[in-house]
């Protein structure tokens, strides 16, 4: 038996979208548990229990799911991916937001970007979620530190 912890967008059809490739691969799904009370930042954690698989099949399944933007946070309770929420304060846009995101994407994946610009001459703020492999977490933090100094941005992180 394999336990997978996923994070899905809180929108209709997202669960079916995630389950389809799994059943297409002929993998038997035992149970689907919604952890609605643990919802963070618009995403819902879902726990899937599937039949035991060989590593190769397991990896193929993970690839298929990730292609569909499904976030797999844990496999059999070992943490694979973390998501970090960030609020950024500073001249977020004027300091080349494209470059900021590209540099973060070297270590993780920036999703759910949201910008607020009260006044084009004032500091703005942005919110984003970054999905990162557990082992790349420190690299990501280092990049955030560098960006913070270079572009005078304040990154407020979640734990």
């Amino acid at each position: 038996m394999i336990i997978l912890d996923l994070e899905l967008k809180d929108a209709p059809g997202e669960l079916i979208k995630a389950l389809t490739p799994i059943s297409k691969m002929g993998i038997n799904i035992h149970s689907v548990i919604h952890l609605r009370e643990k919802k963070v930042d618009g995403r819902i954690p879902v726990r899937l229990v599937v039949d035991g698989l060989e590593d190769k099949t397991l990896n193929e399944m993970i690839d298929e799911l990730e292609k569909l933007d499904v976030i797999i946070t844990k496999v059999n309770n070992s943490i694979r991916k973390r998501d970090i929420d960030l609020v950024v304060i500073g001249h977020v846009v004027d300091t080349d937001i494209r470059d900021t995101i590209d540099r973060l994407n070297k270590y993780g994946l920036v999703i759910d970007l949201d910008l607020s610009m009260p006044d084009p001459f004032k500091e703005s703020s942005a919110r984003m979620k970054i999905i990162v492999d557990s082992e790349k977490l420190n690299d990501l933090y280092n990049e955030l530190d560098k960006l913070s100094k270079e572009k005078n941005l304040l990154f407020i992180k979640s734990f």
Binding site: K39, V40, D41, G42, D85, V87, I89, G90, D114, S116, P118, E123, S124, S125, A126, R127, K129, L154, I156, S158
Partner: peptide, 22 residues
Amino acid sequence: IEGITKITPEALSMANKGGYTI
């Protein structure tokens, strides 16, 4: 050490939208 002098009400609203406070 980083203080709170750079925090703006917009940043707090942004955080709130994502289910957080600062």
